[in-house]
Simulated assay, not measured.
Amino acid sequence: MFGVSAGTALSWANDIRIWAMAFAAFAGIVSWIASYYQLKFSAEVSAEKDRAFNQYKAEAEERTAQALADAAVAKERAASLEKEAAEARLKQEELRRTLAWRSLSASTVEKFRASLPEAGAVTLAYTANDPEALSLSLQFAEAFTQAGWQISMEARTYPDRIFFGVYAPYRLGSPNVGPLHSALSVAGIGFSTEPLPPPPMAFGVSRDNTRALLFIGSKKPPL
């Protein structure tokens, strides 16, 4: 065939088959090696991805924990600041009440005025050189005026002592003391009936002992 003997053709065919089988074996080996390294590299890549993910997860959890801790600290600080602000407001309110001048509310004035009889007379005294006591005495004066009472204002000075609060002492022969005490009680105004000594110095002194005496002393300081 083609000028080649049958023996030579058979030899060539055997050689080709042998080379083909060798090539196939080599290709199989190459394929196995490729598969091996493919699996190995895939495992390494997967492991690297897992390490990266686990690191990201750990960092994220750490950041979350830190954020929660910071939030807790901020919340605690906010609560502390709110407490401090509340305490400051309370102290400010206490200071305001301490420094505030005494005053008669509209309802107190109305109760006091309505409880007084239509006619009466009173000596309305106050601590001299004390603007706060004078202010309160003027509020009483307005109520007495609305009730139709006669008022005699008197500024008293006691160089050796200080009287605090409101005094309405008893006066023998005065018909106005009882109605005055009753009106003060109805209006809820605290007062003392302790006798007061004659002041060493006074301005606008009334000699009429039938008048009731209402003395506005200084405001008592906080303890």
Results as ranks from 00 to 15, higher is better:
residue 174 S to C: 05
residue 166 V to N: 09
residue 154 E to L: 07
residue 66 Q to E: 08
residue 168 A to R: 02
residue 179 P to C: 06
residue 178 G to M: 12
residue 15 D to S: 03
residue 23 F to N: 05
residue 50 D to V: 11
residue 63 R to A: 04
residue 109 V to G: 00
residue 14 N to W: 08
residue 66 Q to N: 02
residue 173 G to Q: 10
residue 1 M to Q: 04
residue 175 P to F: 14
residue 96 R to Y: 08
residue 193 T to G: 08
residue 210 T to I: 05
residue 206 S to K: 05
residue 6 A to W: 06
residue 74 A to L: 06
residue 139 Q to N: 08
residue 70 D to H: 08
residue 37 Y to R: 15
residue 182 S to M: 07
residue 27 A to M: 14
residue 89 R to I: 01
residue 208 D to W: 02
residue 165 G to P: 12
residue 23 F to G: 15
residue 168 A to T: 08
residue 52 A to R: 10
residue 173 G to M: 11
residue 217 G to V: 07
residue 61 E to C: 02
residue 113 R to A: 13
residue 137 S to V: 11
residue 216 I to K: 07
residue 65 A to S: 11
residue 191 F to C: 03
residue 176 N to Y: 14
residue 32 W to V: 14
residue 200 P to Q: 05
residue 43 A to W: 06
residue 202 A to W: 06
residue 48 E to N: 08
residue 13 A to H: 03
residue 182 S to V: 13
residue 70 D to S: 08
residue 30 V to M: 15
residue 99 L to H: 09
residue 17 R to H: 06
residue 115 S to D: 07
residue 158 Y to D: 07
residue 210 T to W: 09
residue 43 A to N: 11
residue 119 A to C: 03
residue 149 W to V: 06
residue 70 D to P: 00
residue 21 M to R: 11
residue 40 K to A: 12
residue 222 P to T: 01
residue 63 R to G: 00
residue 181 H to K: 06
residue 117 P to N: 11
residue 181 H to G: 08
residue 32 W to P: 02
residue 164 F to Y: 15
residue 197 P to S: 12
residue 209 N to L: 14
residue 170 Y to M: 11
residue 145 T to A: 12
residue 23 F to I: 12
residue 70 D to Q: 12
residue 142 E to F: 12
residue 144 F to P: 08
residue 139 Q to H: 10
residue 98 T to K: 04
residue 154 E to V: 08
residue 201 M to R: 14
residue 127 T to Q: 11
residue 83 K to T: 04
residue 7 G to A: 13
residue 133 A to F: 12
residue 43 A to L: 14
residue 163 F to P: 03
residue 31 S to W: 15
residue 219 K to L: 10
residue 14 N to C: 02
residue 33 I to A: 14
residue 42 S to A: 15
residue 108 T to V: 13
residue 38 Q to C: 10
residue 96 R to L: 06
residue 3 G to D: 12
residue 82 E to G: 00
residue 101 W to D: 13
residue 55 Q to G: 03
residue 162 I to Y: 05
residue 125 A to E: 04
residue 31 S to E: 06
residue 66 Q to G: 00
residue 53 F to Y: 15
residue 122 V to K: 02
residue 86 A to W: 01
residue 37 Y to T: 14
residue 8 T to C: 00
residue 83 K to F: 03
residue 73 V to K: 09
residue 201 M to V: 12
residue 115 S to Q: 13
residue 197 P to G: 03
residue 83 K to P: 00
residue 11 S to K: 09
residue 129 N to M: 13
residue 14 N to R: 08
residue 193 T to M: 14
residue 181 H to F: 09
residue 213 L to G: 06
residue 160 D to S: 07
residue 222 P to F: 01
residue 75 K to D: 04
residue 10 L to S: 06
residue 189 I to D: 05
residue 36 Y to M: 11
residue 69 A to S: 05
residue 192 S to C: 09
residue 144 F to T: 04
residue 218 S to F: 02
residue 96 R to N: 10
residue 62 E to W: 02
residue 68 L to N: 03
residue 4 V to G: 00
residue 97 R to K: 10
residue 151 I to E: 01
residue 106 A to I: 13
residue 77 R to K: 08
residue 26 F to S: 12
